[in-house]
Design a protein around this nucleic acid. Structure first.
Lengths: 166, 166
DNA sequence: TTGTAGTTTCAAAATAAATTGAAAGTTTAT
DNA sequence: ATAAACTTTCAATTTATTTTGAAACTACAA
């Protein structure tokens, strides 16, 4: 397999995979392209490489910035904007964990807490309670696990930071 | 909030949440309904409760069985099939972890292993290698974490099993 | 100002995914 | 065998999501 083929395969695979999670193809492919590019790229560059429209590129680049996965880079003397991906993959994982936690875990916790509070009189409501309690536990576990990832890396970064001043 | 309201809220919330993961609304709502039902339910029952078509119910009940989240139950003297959900929420979590691992992690590992093998000559291909190696690490971590969930519960089950013969 | 290079927005079009419903298929009882 | 009760399948429809492209907007330069 040549480098070009490998590159295409990666971009393509990443796009397909992302669809299974809630992420759209363009966004995943934009991320893939920027991840493996040693240079910052302009909107025009990525549009051409992925054969997508200007609007699509613009919107998804913004979403990627909202997720904290890519950054704008201004080149001196250049009018247009360039984009560069966060290259520390653990930081990428941390960002994704953070976002997913915020979007997916937090709202469930809130609803479950609310639903755990209903009275248990009938057999149906007792069963309901049991399920809510069980789900609460599982969700807490997921939440703690994600937090561990997020915090572990933060602590590691903090460690590196402190070394400098030792 | 009355019990009926809580029930509706749970079913509705679960359906919405599921969409963010790759699961469709009907499947999630069917699961929710069966989870909180103390009794096994017929296809007709769930169709009526969720106001969905026979075909939709049939297909999604099958998918839920494929995921190992619900079971068929035959009632003596009854011709039609009844469905009951796996009520051990940790077992549910374990099943979901297993399925997602199989569908989402395994294929990525394969592609990454293949892509890690390309030659590193140009600056571009060196960068590419770095990214692939980094992703490999992260994916391995996710894989190990999921496995820990899966195995922890299996060991626990195995422990319970062995107790009987002690 | 006015023009130019660039970015963002958003209604409309294209694409993808979920759902329906009726026909075909199964199983059991008579 | 035939019918009745029930389940599955799948082409057609509906719904939801993604993508396009051109107009509106912004920032800068002459």
């Amino acid at each position: 397999m040549t480098f070009e083929e490998a590159k295409d395969k990666f971009i393509h695979t990443w796009g397909t995979l992302a669809t299974q999670w809630g992420i759209n193809r363009s966004m995943a492919q934009l991320h893939a392209v920027l991840l493996i590019s040693p240079e910052a790229m302009s909107t025009e560059d990525v549009m051409e490489q992925l054969q997508i429209s200007r609007g699509n590129a613009s919107m998804n680049l913004r979403d990627l910035m909202d997720w904290g996965l890519i950054y704008k880079q201004l080149k001196p003397g250049e009018r247009r904007e360039f984009f560069i991906a966060e290259k520390d993959i653990w930081k990428v994982a941390r960002q994704v964990a953070k976002e997913r936690r915020r979007r997916e875990i937090t709202p469930v916790v809130e609803v479950l807490d609310e639903l755990k509070a209903i009275p248990t009189d009938t057999p149906e409501s007792i069963e309901f309670q049991r399920v809510m309690a069980g789900l609460s536990n599982v969700v807490s576990f997921a939440d703690n696990t994600l937090n561990a990832v997020i915090k572990a890396e933060e602590n590691w970064l903090m460690g590196q930071f402190l070394k400098v001043f030792r």
